[in-house]
Design a binder for these strands. Structure first.
Ligand SMILES: [Mn+2]
Ligand SMILES: [Mn+2]
Ligand SMILES: [Zn+2]
Ligand SMILES: [Zn+2]
Lengths: 136, 136
DNA sequence: TCGTTGTTTATAATTATTCTAAAGAAGATT
DNA sequence: AATCTTCTTTAGAATAATTATAAACAACGA
C-alpha cells in the first residue's frame, strides 16, 4: 500500500508537479502488491475505471515517459503494436503469452545467471533481458 | 552466393509467384555471406541501391511477411519505432547497440544454454531470446 | 493576491503499417 | 500463340500508436 506522499515524492523526483491527474496515474501504477505490466492504453482505461476521473491521453503518455526516464518504469522489448511498460524496474526476465498478449515475470532464479562471453570494443552492457514466448 | 533458382524455390514454398520484384527482394535478402538484420525501410532503400529498380513499399511488406510466415525470416523483439527482421532464422541471441540502432548476432556459445525452470500450465515454450543492450 | 512557470487537454501532425482497387503479369488451357 | 483465370504490383487511402501544438488552466513562490 503506497501513500500519496510517496507519489508526490516520485513526481517531484521526476521534475513533475503533483497534480490531480498525475496522482491518479500514480494510484493506478504504484498502489499495488505485485508488478504491473501495461500498455499506455491499458493504463488510460484503468485510470477511468479505478479513479472515476478521466485523464487525457497526452498526460498519460507524458507522465509515463517521465517516470521511464527517471527509472520508475521499465520498457519491455516486445514486438507488438503497442509499447509495454513494467512497474518492476529491477533486472528481470519475462514470459510473453503471445495469444493473451500478457507478460509474466520470471524470477532470476527461474532463469539463472546469464554470462555474456562476447564484448564489443567501446561498448558496455546496459541490460540483459530474456524473453520467453509462450504458445498453447 | 545464392542462385536465382533458390530464390524461386523460396518464393514457391511461400506460395508466391516468382516475379521480377520478388526476385530483387530475394537478391538483397539472401544473396549474402553473413546474417542480415534490417527494417522494412532499410530493405526498401537497399533494393533501389543494389538492383537499380524500385519495388513498391507494399510489395516489400507483403513479401517480407510471407517469408516470415514461412520461416525464412525471423522477427527480432526490440522496442523501436520500426520492426526488425533477421535472415538468421536459427535460435540465437542479440546485442542491440542502442545508439547505432544496430543488431549484432551472439553465438549460442557466447551466452550458454538457458534453462527455464518455471512453467505455465497449458502453455509451452515457443522461443527463448536474449537481448543484450549496449551503450557507450 | 499576483505573477511566473509548469500543466492539461483537445486536436492536429507524424509515422509505421495495412488496406484497396485498378492495371498489369504469370501460369494454365486451348 | 491467343485466351482465360488467377495472382501481383502499385499508388494512394486508411489505420493506429505516438508525439507535437497551443490555448485555457493550475501550482507555487513572492
Ligand atoms: Mn520511453
Ligand atoms: Mn510479421
Ligand atoms: Zn516484469
Ligand atoms: Zn540475428
Amino acid at each position: 500500500m503506497t501513500s500519496k506522499q510517496e507519489f508526490i515524492e516520485k513526481l517531484r523526483n521526476s521534475s513533475l508537479r503533483p497534480t490531480k491527474q498525475r496522482i491518479n496515474i500514480c494510484e493506478v501504477l504504484f498502489n499495488r502488491d505485485k508488478t504491473f505490466h501495461f500498455t499506455i492504453n491499458d493504463l488510460f482505461n484503468l485510470i477511468k475505471d479505478k479513479t472515476g476521473e478521466k485523464v487525457s491521453l497526452a498526460t498519460v503518455y507524458n507522465t509515463v515517459h517521465a517516470f521511464h526516464r527517471k527509472g520508475y518504469l521499465k520498457e519491455i522489448p516486445i514486438n507488438s503494436n503497442q509499447t509495454y511498460f513494467d512497474t518492476n524496474v529491477t533486472d528481470h526476465h519475462h514470459f510473453f503469452d503471445v495469444k493473451e498478449e500478457k507478460l509474466i515475470d520470471l524470477k532470476n532464479e527461474d532463469v539463472g545467471p546469464i554470462e555474456i562471453q562476447k564484448s564489443i570494443p567501446g561498448k558496455k552492457i546496459k541490460s540483459v533481458e530474456v524473453l520467453v514466448k509462450l504458445e498453447d
